[in-house]
Amino acid sequence: MTDDNKKRTASFLEKLRQKATTQQHYGGGVPEEEAKMDIRDCPNCGAGRAYHKGLTSCAYCGFAFMNITLTDGIHIRKENNS
């Protein structure tokens, strides 16, 4: 291997590495987010949401949180329809 070839390869690798590690990836980086807990009160009457009253509408004023019918999913089940 001649010195010229070595230099050519090394310079190519250096540039490639630079390109691969510094360019922006599509969609950006993945931010490291911690686990968190949140709650959503009824935006209409301000009441809290009770689990046994179902997920789709407010147990107090009838406001629709979601205009859909829940099916059997992973954690959410049909029974969770209000």
Binding site: E33, E34, A35, D38
Partner: peptide
């Protein structure tokens, strides 16, 4: 305790 519906968001690592 109060049966309120909370939403848990797991960490990115999870």
């Amino acid at each position: 305790f109060c049966q309120s519906q909370n939403t848990f968001s797991p960490s990115t690592a999870a």
